[in-house]
Design a protein around this nucleic acid. Structure first.
Lengths: 188, 188
DNA sequence: TTTTATCTATCTATCAATAGGTAGATAAAA
DNA sequence: TTTTATCTACCTATTGATAGATAGATAAAA
């Protein structure tokens, strides 16, 4: 069996484009990343980026859906009894902190949410799907943790999600990283 | 006493420029509003906007500080015993909802926070000042409401502020206005 | 095996639109 | 006369996007 004969047409370039775009969106938002910047960063020309992702919206959708898939893959199954739901919650909160707050950025989803009026509708759809992934996972965790019914648990999930995103806003606006743990102490 | 003889050099145009800029920032962020759009909206040329606010940063600072001043003027003095601190808190939460959520926008401060990497430093400073106004007002309210010391009250203030901003993110991302009251039910 | 055709990934060059900002003229008001 | 507020006209830079060429790989046909 030959090595590297798998059909992986151009995975490398596509991935590098998405990596660069994700970083740019997180840092400056949808409106402020350009095909030229991305092209320069990965060492090709902007027309070649258009070859892989015809429009800016296409690229943003690709970035957002990849992010959602990776995120989903990281979450443990809430129904697996061997993991304490309390630990799952702490892991979620710590993960958010690690990915977002400590890099002095806001999350990919918060940035795209802020720019929602500028987005092609397809990106807005991908964005809403990501929030639904988070909400339904947290709901299942709260069902187990606090013996709540679905509705009550989903309410708590929304409350926690608001605390998380709001905490990141507070950190970014004030520059004081401590606000993250302070805002989240409500949940620990 | 003559009417309208007050020193108000060009308050009308300046105000109209700020109004337009504020609306544009709230709708699309710092990066996506332009002097040309503003000029067209109020019926002058972009060069005339530059006359009143030489740079984009100058205009954004003016918008943000005006917003802070108006906001501060709306808040009741937390030490006035005739107003129930519980009512003050509810008023704050309701006011946020009215100004932000019901217009399907995010707040001026959240938008600028998302764009922080793009902002001239002066805008960042004006932004941080606004958060400090909110935090210290809420701190005083919590001192009275729950008999807390300054530190404990400021912690709660941060937690509430996070819930408020996070709730607006949730509403904007999902399009479901109900998330605001759900996320805030924690505080009512 | 050679030729022909197609596909992939990149390039150069360019487009129209828009950006923030500036120079200089003008006319009215103080 | 000087100041205030506006204009016209322009500059340089950047944007998302497209057209057309090219080099190399692949695969089918002769």
């Amino acid at each position: 069996m030959k090595t590297s004969s798998n059909k992986q047409p151009d995975k490398d370039t596509k991935t590098r484009i998405m990596d660069s775009a994700e970083r740019a969106i997180v840092q400056s938002g949808y409106g402020a990343f350009s095909f030229r910047d991305i092209a320069e960063e990965i060492g090709i020309k902007s027309a070649s980026v258009h070859y892989h992702y015809p429009t800016k919206g296409d690229l943003a959708v690709a970035v957002m859906t990849r992010f959602t898939d990776e995120f989903r893959a990281l979450l443990p199954d809430p129904k697996v009894a061997s993991i304490d739901p309390r630990a799952m919650l702490d892991g979620f909160i710590d993960g958010f902190k690690k990915k977002i707050v400590e890099q002095h950025n806001m999350s990919l989803c918060t940035m795209l949410t802020a720019d929602k009026h500028l987005l092609p509708e397809s990106v807005g759809v991908a964005l809403a799907e990501f929030y639904e992934v988070k909400l339904s996972w947290l709901t299942q965790v709260f069902v187990r943790l606090n013996n709540l019914d679905e509705d009550q648990a989903r309410l708590k999930a929304g409350q926690l999600l608001a605390s998380l995103h709001g905490a990141s806003v507070l950190v970014q606006a004030t520059g004081e990283v401590d606000w993250y743990e302070k805002a989240l102490s409500l949940w620990r």
